[in-house]
């Protein structure tokens, strides 16, 4: 397999709350290969979005990166200076936010929001930038006339397409998609997912796709990481994970999905709630909700070990 374009190593992010630190991402390692769609799934509050924002160093103030490395192009993104960081942002790595409703500036036109990023990074004339912006809108199926629209004049789905067009404006190597379809209805969601898949196949960028919806990722990602309470529980190629989930949490997630083939099989729920990150349980963080927990699970944190080729899992039962 070819070299990864992005290598996250032991990344930790904490939120400062008074005197204490709440660890939202705990020593997470993940790499992304060229042209690969890496899925990142987990429940609300497990650190998915925090991880995504850490990659571009756009975490809001109470969050601080407390350890680890994010390697891109032989450099650690966490170490580079402001100028290098500005160059890297959007040209190399771009992001699509969860809430397209709020991701666009409400008082300036869509066109200006696409062209300003082109003009900031490329030496082109404003006219050329506008031509490019029109092409980008057309590429995501929006009539170029909307270059003069404000975001409130567009529907939710159109706004999210604008955000996707925006993310592709500089043909970045990696696009981070943080629940890009959460705010949309299922039909628009389906259209946009197909569009992302098409564009990815055509342009060949890598995607880090974050969602709480495992069903999406199973049909659409190449590799899949399951996050639970700031830790990676399991990473495997999607096919492998679907056929052979090893972590009890992953297995329960799979059984929680409704099945079209066997409609009489009721989806199961996972009892309990995810732990508070301010006061996580000792040992394996999943043990209070795990019906197969054994004594060691309560004491020791399971290491992430490779059980099969590229299939890593953090569970005492497996190792």
């Amino acid at each position: 397999m070819n070299e990864p374009v992005l290598k996250i190593e032991n990344l930790s992010v904490d939120y400062v709350s008074g005197e204490t630190l709440v660890r939202a991402v705990d020593r997470v390692s993940l790499d992304v290969k060229p042209g690969e769609i890496v899925g990142l799934a987990g429940e609300s509050g497990c650190g998915k979005t925090t991880l995504a924002k850490a990659i571009l160093r756009i975490l809001p103030p109470p969050a601080i990166i407390t350890g680890g490395k994010i390697e891109y192009g032989g450099k650690d993104i966490l170490e580079i200076n402001e100028g290098e960081l500005r160059n890297l942002r959007w040209q190399k790595i771009s992001i699509v936010f969860q809430s397209a409703m709020n991701a666009l500036n409400p008082v300036i036109r869509v066109g200006e929001q696409i062209t300003d990023v082109i003009l900031a990074h490329k030496s082109v004339s404003p006219d050329e930038a506008y031509d490019r912006a029109r092409q980008l809108l057309e590429m995501v199926g929006i009539h170029p006339i909307h270059i003069n629209s404000y975001s409130h004049q567009l529907s939710g789905g159109m706004r999210q397409r604008v955000c996707i067009a925006l993310a592709l404006a500089l043909e970045p190597e990696i696009v981070i998609m943080d629940e890009p379809t959460t705010a949309l209805d299922v039909i628009v969601e389906r259209e946009i997912l197909n569009q992302i898949k098409d564009l990815q196949a055509r342009l060949g960028f890598s995607v880090i796709y974050i969602t709480h919806d495992l069903a999406h990722l199973l049909q659409f990602s190449h590799r899949l990481a399951i996050l639970y309470a700031a830790h990676i529980a399991e990473i495997a190629p999607t096919q492998e994970l679907r056929e052979n989930p090893l972590h009890p949490y992953t297995q329960k997630l799979m059984r929680a999905m409704p099945s079209l083939a066997q409609s009489e099989v009721k989806p199961e729920t996972i009892p309990g709630t995810p732990p508070s990150l301010a006061n996580p349980p000792p040992g394996c963080r999943f043990h209070p909700r795990c019906d197969r927990a054994i004594e060691i699970c309560r004491r020791e944190k399971p290491p992430l070990v490779e059980k099969a080729t590229n299939h890593l899992v953090a569970c005492h039962l497996v190792s």
């Binding site: 756009i58 809001p60 500005r86 992001i95 991701a103 666009l104 500036n105 409400p106 990023v117």
Partner: peptide, 16 residues
């Protein structure tokens, strides 16, 4: 807000 955070992620100059 998200749109300011996105503007930062776009690598625009801080003044802008």
């Amino acid at each position: 807000s998200d749109y300011v955070n996105l503007a930062k992620a776009k690598g625009l100059k801080p003044a802008r």
